[in-house]
Design a protein around this nucleic acid. Structure first.
Lengths: 223, 223
DNA sequence: TAGATTGTTAATCGATTAACAATC
DNA sequence: TAGATTGTTAATCGATTAACAATC
């Protein structure tokens, strides 16, 4: 496989790729995977842009942040670009993930197949409910919260999902940080205060619907 | 209640409030609700900004898109600002929502209490599984997909949640559009093609984890 | 009044788009 | 070669921040 040219290594001085770019990178990856499934060997910035609603210039510019992946006159080889983006995103390996909270949402996420397809595996779950502790859900063991640090260390876990009620989310997050977790995906409807060295992504399901209702109510022709 | 000054009505010519602003508006609302729960009657742009990691100027600027809600020298009255933001977001009313797909995720979302707290109620669910159709889940009736248009009209549904497998998401979305739905919250890992008049919000759970793994791998000091 | 904080204008910063020489 | 498409530079556009007069 032909190694293409790279950029100033991302862990260096002025890296700082905008958040929005990284988020589009994931969309490119998803689209490329669909294209491969549909039997396409190559694509180009215009096609990718059209599929996602971006300009072709934006697609090229985004990728240019990380190196040179295309072939002038040809476009991008799908498999090759997939591999490159996975490497950039860090999903060219498997990530064991901790799941805290086994309510409805936690259990649903535990069963979600999409994580595995993209390089994540829920390696341990944690709950406070004595009924659940010690059991196995979907083949994954349920631990008490006070074994967090121990299990995180033993399993090499660096990422965690928080799916507990709002009232306990900050306390859980504090424990995760203390246990050495480096990134938290939070589904509780609160803004978690985390040290700067810990990455944070929040998904608030009600807020997503609010964005829709805003859009519907404020539709250009819709007083 | 003291009616404060408004802006060029949002359904007018040059409105076009940036998407990012609306998303922060939801965060302000959430934070204000927490502040009220903690017994605060007023807040100010510095406090809101600090809680959410924004500058005070940004908080004021965002709100200024929609009118004048503050009191110089005082700040913002929480309850009043909450009411104002809800009105802007359109959640000063109740939205009946359709839920399509009753797999793990669909059922978990059906049980999620956060929707109700913010003005949404899942009023009908749809699935293809004959086993499920006709039943009631969490007090909500399960209909076959071919009754979409009928039920959507009968219940005055304008928003829908798609929680079906990727392979069927576009077909479901097409049916929703045909049924007259105006906004779609999509959990399937595909980019839905929708007519411009229909609003679209996508949540891809694996992508959220990818954003975390990128952040962890590309941490300034972390080669 | 003095102190605090708003809404808004101007200045800065960053991101998107357009254009095009270089390349296959 | 002619045609297509990249990577990149320059131009445009939009969003964030700083600063401050107006207000309570």
């Amino acid at each position: 496989m032909d190694e293409r040219k790279g950029k100033p290594s991302p862990g260096s001085p002025e890296s700082a790729v905008p958040r929005a770019v990284v988020s589009r990178l994931s969309l490119y990856l998803r689209e490329l995977q669909h294209l491969v499934n549909d039997g396409n060997a190559t694509t180009n910035s215009t096609q990718l842009g059209t599929l996602l609603g971006f300009t072709d210039a934006q697609v090229r510019k985004d990728l240019a942040n990380f190196g040179q992946f295309g072939y002038p006159g040809v476009g991008y080889r799908c498999e090759e670009l997939i591999a490159a983006i996975k490497k950039i995103l860090g999903t060219d390996r498997f990530w064991p993930v901790a799941m805290v909270g086994l309510g409805n949402l936690g259990r649903a996420l535990l069963r979600y197949r999409g994580f595995g397809e993209q390089g994540f595996r829920i390696a341990a779950t944690f709950d406070v409910d004595a009924e659940k502790i010690g059991n196995t859900v979907e083949g994954v063991e349920v631990f008490p919260l006070d074994r967090l640090a121990e299990v995180v260390a033993a399993k090499g876990i660096r990422l965690a999902i928080v799916a507990v009620p709002a009232a306990s989310a900050q306390a859980v997050a504090d424990s995760l940080v203390a246990a050495g977790v480096e990134g938290v995906l939070n589904f509780a409807p609160v803004t978690l205060a985390l040290p700067e060295r810990v990455s944070r992504v929040g998904v608030d399901l009600a807020i997503e619907l609010e964005q829709l209702s805003f859009a519907v109510v404020n539709r250009p022709e819709n007083p």
